[in-house]
Write a protein that binds this DNA or RNA. Structure first.
Lengths: 124, 124, 124, 124
DNA sequence: GTGGTCTAGACCACT
DNA sequence: GTGGTCTAGACCACA
């Protein structure tokens, strides 16, 4: 899996990392139970500080995407969907919908946008 | 229009404000050409710092939702959709889709999520 | 409120801090809604690093003892008891009980131990 | 006796092991003088490192629950209660009480919690 | 060798 | 001035 960090982005590095790992899970590049690289290893690989990777892993653990096995380090373990997750997704989706409505992008086009993303990544 | 700020949220206050104004535009509570309250006024109303409101207005201007006139202050002026906006929406949508896929939320359910939002707000 | 850190303890500094703040809440020295000192302030006061205080505050937030107001910083806000908290208390209590049973400390004496703690701190 | 280790727990493996052995003694599954399994044996059985078991045994020895004989290995030998043990129990109990008070769990409920634990394990 | 903890110093976004 | 983020380097507990 290729992790690409944009050092010029205004998104925090640890969030970029978090989101790319979530994307990797969605794309089945990381599978349930797979070990993540050690914080030092990954930090070296992508040229950022150990602690920044650590923070990304912590957030992923809080959000229910990884667990930590005290023997093996971090590994993928996605929690089943909970009310709380759905609320979060709904909030973020609401922001996208609001923007679309303002710009005169139709509901039909939003559906197509989703389908396009699924198609691009060979999902479903 | 009621603006509700959650001071305990992780989201920056100026972004909450920005998003609620965009939502207001989408819901047709703010119409093209309507003046926004003055920075000072709005800051007092919702109990936040003047600079924070200022920042929200700046971002809205940059994102093409309002324009600023020396005499009238800020007023709603939504740019027509541009390639750049679509790219942004796609990115944010991609993050939502990735999360959904991880949690085993289906494409069909995402479509329903959008429809639900339209319905809740009586859109379209 | 006096916070006392034992630098020779094998308990992590941020946990000592966390526990003392919880104790302070229990003893009504910190009241619902009270602001905690800024991380820098408290760090200076007790002679530890800012980041260590920050970690203590983060854990307190996760555990539902404080919230962060983006304007005022951290303040006391205790979540109502949840199944999850009770489970945790039960686990820790189980460990104490097991130890007591091994040492031939009776159930009656455990009850008295609790009552003694309440009394010492003028609780109830 | 069944030892169950949670590899995803925040608690160190050697402490989980220690606590489960203490629980075993309390439940009279391990009796005074009984030999504990060899370090190697137990490590294999529960799938952890030999050094981790060793550490657990060391701590149990320090805390006065087992003694070690060159020939027989570790065996149960519980010290009679000392001032030092009581102080430790009091400290840990104080932390539980503090949490309970914060969460509005009453003294009566704490007593019931203890009684429930005794009952669940058929103690006394 | 691994993550956890702690320190230190710095910059920036936000209020 | 505040917390948030990032970097850097160090030590230790753990496995």
């Amino acid at each position: 899996m290729f992790i690409e960090i944009d050092f010029n982005s205004d998104e925090a590095l640890y969030l970029q990392l978090r989101n790319q790992i979530i994307l990797g899970i969605a794309l089945d590049e990381y599978h349930e139970g797979d070990a993540l690289p050690s914080v030092r290893q990954l930090a070296d690989d992508i040229g950022i500080n150990m602690h920044t990777v650590n923070k990304a892993y912590s957030v992923l653990r809080q959000d229910g995407y990884v667990k930590v096995d005290r023997r093996r380090g971090a590994f993928i373990a996605v929690d089943s969907v909970k009310e709380e997750h759905l609320r979060g997704m709904r909030e973020r989706m609401k922001a996208v919908v609001a923007e679309a409505v303002c710009r005169n992008v139709s509901k039909r086009e939003l559906h197509a946008l989703i389908d396009g993303i699924y198609e691009e990544y060979g999902l479903e």
